[in-house]
Design a protein around this nucleic acid. Structure first.
Lengths: 204, 204
DNA sequence: CGCAAACTTGCACGCCGTGCACACATGCGT
DNA sequence: ACGCATGTGTGCACGGCGTGCAAGTTTGCG
């Protein structure tokens, strides 16, 4: 992790950012995203409205930030898999590990709130796209491709990243929308998703 | 097509919508999306600013509308494939047909402009998500699933739709970002994309 | 022709997002 | 310990955004 040594300044920044994001989620859970103003969020985090915009460029970004951070963890889990694992094996294993990181019911409630708020959808998808780019780089490295500084990768890596993120998104959406909170169900759906991808999605 | 018989009212509405969308694209191409105000778009389409919001809820939506409509065509092409084709065959064939619909250089310039405008990304992705839902329904019907009125579909259909849309997005992005305008290159990349999906994206 | 429904428009209002200037805190070299 | 360069927080101002509302206009239909 990069969280080893930070000066007071850095720590304060992270704390403020976290406070803003948490306030955004809490207020949105209570009143609905649409009915929360940025000013309320800033007040709850005890900073000025102007300062809010030093950290996030919109209310939606603040609400989604937590979810986004969880996605970064997934990318790191993939990177941490042994180099001799195939791409799809590494992705599958990392994803199943990642299910453990989904914490308690409050986080799940927040997830549900986000997934069913239409105005949040564009920003959630944009967050997915960000992680997809990061994941593509990790996959390209695993494939032995050399990745230029601009982050452009080959078709194969970009495709694998996009497809798996799409699969994860679909499975996660169905799980949060469904009534159950049983993680075994989620694990089973993820496994089936990877199985179908491996089988080429063929129906004949 | 559904464009057979429309009253004057409906035709005017479609014309206004098209005029707004085209004005949005033209002005964005000329000045950049960020520097175009909704008022300018409304003026160019010769309607009031207030009327703009009767058609689109944001500038971005208007700019992306054309691209979005093209996506609907793709979904219809898939639906039109013979019922005895497998899902992946129908998707592959429809997509290759769809390449023909990409018209001249001006449309391509518009596409390029959209793809490289960051503030448009969320709305483009949301548009993709809309078509993904429609595509999932078409796929579910082809699989013989019965689709309830709320549009919910099985994992298999949802997954196939999401994965193929993700693949198309990746290939299209790489093509527009690359220098070439050669459609044979695009066709080849699409074919390779489907091949890799069929092969389960496996690298061992 | 006349009415009901749909569409357009102007107005008003509050929120959003940013540039700017200035105050203040921090870290760093001396 | 001190002072300076740099970075961060805040208030202010301003223009654009998005919507509810009510009044005016057009369209479709009996």
């Amino acid at each position: 992790m990069t969280t080893v040594e930070l000066g007071r300044r850095e720590r304060k920044k992270l704390a403020t950012r976290a406070a803003l994001s948490e306030a955004a989620v809490a207020l949105s859970l209570e009143h609905g995203v649409e009915h929360v103003t940025i000013e309320q969020i800033a007040d709850a985090a005890d900073v000025s409205l102007r300062t809010f915009f030093n950290y996030f460029s919109s209310k939606e970004e603040a609400v989604v930030a937590g979810d986004s951070a969880r996605g970064d963890v997934l990318v790191e889990l993939v990177r941490a898999r042994p180099a001799d694992e195939s791409v799809m094996t590494a992705l599958r294993t990392a994803m199943l590990e990642h299910v453990e990181d989904l914490a308690g019911d409050d986080q799940l409630d927040a997830l549900r709130m986000m997934r069913r708020t239409p105005s949040l959808l564009p920003h959630q998808l944009a967050a997915y796209a960000d992680r997809e780019r990061a994941l593509a780089v990790v996959i390209a490295e695993r494939l032995g491709d050399d990745v230029p500084d601009d982050g452009s990768v080959g078709l194969r890596a970009a495709l694998a990243a996009a497809v798996v993120m799409a699969g994860v998104r679909v499975v996660l959406l169905r799980w949060t929308d469904g009534g159950t909170r049983d993680r075994d169900v989620l694990r089973a759906d993820l496994a089936e998703m990877f199985d179908q991808l491996a089988a080429g999605l063929d129906d004949r």
